[in-house]
Simulated scan of single mutants.
Amino acid sequence: MKRCIQCSVAYTATDWACPGCSFAPPIIDGWPAFASESAISTSGFRPEAFAELAALEVGNFWFQARNQLIVWALKRHFPELRSFLEIGCGTGFVLEGIAQAFPQAKMAGSEILSAGLPFAAQRMASAELFQMDARRIPYDSEFDVIGAFDVLEHIEEDESVLAEIHRALVAGGAAIFTVPQHRWLWSSIDEHACHVRRYRTGELREKLDRSGFHVELETSFVSLLLPMMLASRLSRKDAPEQDANAEMRLPRILNQLLLGVMAVERGLIKSGIRFPIGGSRLVVARKIS
Rank of each mutant, 00 (worst) to 15 (best):
G59A: 12
S8G: 01
V264Q: 04
F149A: 13
E206C: 06
M124G: 13
D15Q: 09
R274S: 13
G59V: 09
P19N: 01
Q256M: 07
L259H: 12
E156V: 14
S188P: 06
P227L: 01
R233T: 03
A125P: 13
R210H: 12
I189C: 00
D144N: 08
G202I: 02
S8D: 10
I165T: 10
P180W: 06
W31I: 09
R281E: 01
V261C: 02
A148V: 13
M228L: 14
G260I: 03
R252L: 02
L254E: 04
R233F: 05
I269Q: 06
W72K: 10
F130P: 00
L129V: 03
T12G: 10
M229N: 01
F23K: 00
A246N: 00
V9K: 13
G172D: 07
P240D: 08
R167Q: 14
L208A: 03
A121R: 08
M132A: 12
Q6D: 10
D150G: 14
L152D: 12
L217S: 07
H214F: 05
R197F: 11
L129K: 06
M107T: 01
L224G: 06
T201Y: 08
M107N: 04
Q100E: 15
V151N: 07
S271K: 09
D209Q: 12
N60S: 06
W62E: 05
R82C: 10
H214Q: 11
S22N: 03
D15H: 11
E48F: 00
A33E: 00
G260L: 08
I253L: 15
G30L: 14
V9G: 01
V261A: 07
P79E: 14
C4D: 06
I27A: 12
D150P: 07
V170H: 01
Q6L: 11
A231R: 12
E191N: 08
F78Y: 15
L204C: 03
L257D: 08
A73C: 15
A263N: 08
